[in-house]
Structures are given as C-alpha cells and as structure tokens.
Simulated scan of single mutants.
Amino acid sequence: MTGLLVVTAVPAEAEAVRAGLPDPSTAVLPVGVGPAVAAATTARLLALAEAAGRPYRGVVSAGVAGGFAGRADVGATVLGSVSVAADLGAESPAGFLPVDELGMPPEWLGGGLALAADPGLLAALRAGLPTATVGAVLTVSTVTGTAASTDALRRRHPDAVAEAMEGYGVAVAAAQAGVPFAELRTVSNPVGPRDRDAWRMREALAALTTAAAALT
C-alpha cells in the first residue's frame, strides 16, 4: 500500500504542496480545474494504483480557495468537514433548488450532495494543523462574484467556510474507490464581488506550503 495521494487543480498548487512535504515520496499531482476533470483524473489515478497492487491509503484535495469573510479570512488554512456540490441543481422562480430536491436519489449523486471527510484522516490533519478553520467547503463550477450570490450561499450553507472548484469531484472519486478523503485549502481571497487586486495568491501558496507539513 502506498501513502497519500494529494491532488491539486493547477501545477502552482502542486509545487507549493511539494515544497512543504516532510515525505518527498508522497504523490502530489495537478488534476485540472473544476469538479468534472478533477473527479475523472482522480478516479483514474486511484484505479491505476489499485490495479498495480499499490492502492493509496487516502486522497486529499488541496489548493487555494475563496473564504467567507468572518469565517475564513485571507491567509487562513481550512479543513473541510464536508465537501458540498453547491451549485448542482436548478433555477426556479422561488430561487435555487438543489438537485436532491428534484427527486434525485443519493446513489445518482455519488452518495449525495455533501460528502463528509473521513473522520480519521480529518482528525490527523486537525492534529497537525490545530489553528485551521474546520467547516463545509463548497464546490462550485462558477466562482461566486457578486454580493447577492454570496448572501444566497451563506443562507443555503450556514456552515460553509470556503469555496473552491474541485473538492466534491475528488470526494466522489474517493468514495467510489472506497478510499478515505479530506480537503485542505488556504484562503487567497474573500468570497464576494470579484476583485483580483484583493487576491493574495502568493500568500495563500506560502500558507499551503506550511500546511503541507501535516500531510504525513
């Protein structure tokens, strides 16, 4: 059995994780942006490892994220207690309807719209990152960019601390493979009106390197 598989969206995140790893043999691979490509690539990596007789003992979705102000501010490290498919659903005159409210059974959704982190893996990461903020991390295909959308997400997900684009996809791949899953993020910008000048990507990547020490 091999160690952890750490997947990021882009190479810069993978490089930041590798820079802080205590064990250079840990696999760290960029799998692409968005839940679909992240799920497909992670599933392939897990299947190849299992077929080779060297299955991974866990998979972590890692990278930068937007943080909900007052819950996870810029520079914070976040551990996802649950990864949520936050924009999978339908519009209606009454507002957004999550897809499970449209009559879709959980097995059609890879286990549901909210997939919890593995308790043991999450506990190990919390022990290594005692100051990290723990809460729901929302997975979206369209990054939130208005105050109205931010307020709507806050109302629908009062336990959400951050927003990213891959966690739920990786969680589905891990669940299908029977492999423990967790999500680790560092905050580069507040969720809300889009303002690239307010992003602190360099600081978030540096925080990701620091947090990677917990990935033992």
Score class of each variant (00 low, 15 high):
residue 1 M to E: 12
residue 1 M to Y: 08
residue 3 G to I: 04
residue 7 V to W: 01
residue 10 V to T: 09
residue 11 P to H: 00
residue 11 P to R: 03
residue 12 A to P: 00
residue 14 A to D: 10
residue 15 E to I: 06
residue 15 E to F: 04
residue 15 E to M: 09
residue 17 V to R: 03
residue 17 V to A: 03
residue 18 R to N: 03
residue 18 R to Y: 01
residue 22 P to A: 15
residue 24 P to C: 07
residue 25 S to A: 15
residue 26 T to Y: 08
residue 27 A to H: 14
residue 31 V to D: 05
residue 32 G to C: 05
residue 33 V to S: 11
residue 33 V to M: 11
residue 37 V to K: 13
residue 38 A to W: 01
residue 40 A to Y: 10
residue 42 T to K: 03
residue 43 A to V: 00
residue 45 L to N: 05
residue 47 A to W: 10
residue 50 E to G: 13
residue 51 A to T: 09
residue 55 P to E: 02
residue 62 A to C: 04
residue 65 A to I: 03
residue 66 G to T: 02
residue 66 G to Y: 06
residue 68 F to H: 14
residue 73 D to P: 08
residue 74 V to G: 14
residue 75 G to C: 06
residue 75 G to E: 04
residue 77 T to D: 03
residue 78 V to K: 08
residue 81 S to H: 02
residue 83 S to T: 04
residue 84 V to H: 01
residue 90 A to V: 09
residue 90 A to R: 10
residue 91 E to Y: 12
residue 93 P to I: 02
residue 96 F to A: 07
residue 97 L to Q: 11
residue 99 V to K: 05
residue 107 E to W: 12
residue 109 L to M: 06
residue 112 G to Q: 11
residue 114 A to T: 05
residue 116 A to C: 00
residue 118 D to C: 01
residue 121 L to N: 00
residue 122 L to A: 00
residue 123 A to L: 09
residue 124 A to R: 15
residue 125 L to G: 01
residue 126 R to L: 05
residue 128 G to N: 02
residue 132 A to G: 07
residue 134 V to G: 02
residue 136 A to I: 03
residue 138 L to Y: 02
residue 139 T to M: 07
residue 139 T to C: 05
residue 143 V to L: 12
residue 143 V to Y: 07
residue 147 A to Q: 14
residue 148 A to G: 10
residue 149 S to R: 15
residue 150 T to S: 09
residue 150 T to V: 08
residue 151 D to P: 12
residue 151 D to R: 15
residue 151 D to L: 14
residue 152 A to R: 15
residue 154 R to C: 09
residue 158 P to C: 11
residue 162 A to V: 02
residue 165 M to P: 09
residue 166 E to I: 07
residue 166 E to Q: 10
residue 166 E to P: 05
residue 168 Y to S: 10
residue 168 Y to F: 14
residue 169 G to S: 13
residue 170 V to Q: 06
residue 177 A to R: 15
residue 178 G to M: 09
residue 178 G to C: 10
residue 178 G to S: 10
residue 179 V to S: 06
residue 181 F to C: 00
residue 188 S to K: 04
residue 192 G to C: 06
residue 193 P to E: 14
residue 194 R to W: 10
residue 199 W to Y: 13
residue 200 R to D: 13
residue 201 M to L: 15
residue 203 E to Q: 15
residue 203 E to Y: 11
residue 207 A to V: 14
residue 210 T to M: 12
residue 211 A to V: 09
residue 212 A to T: 04
residue 215 L to I: 03
residue 215 L to Y: 03
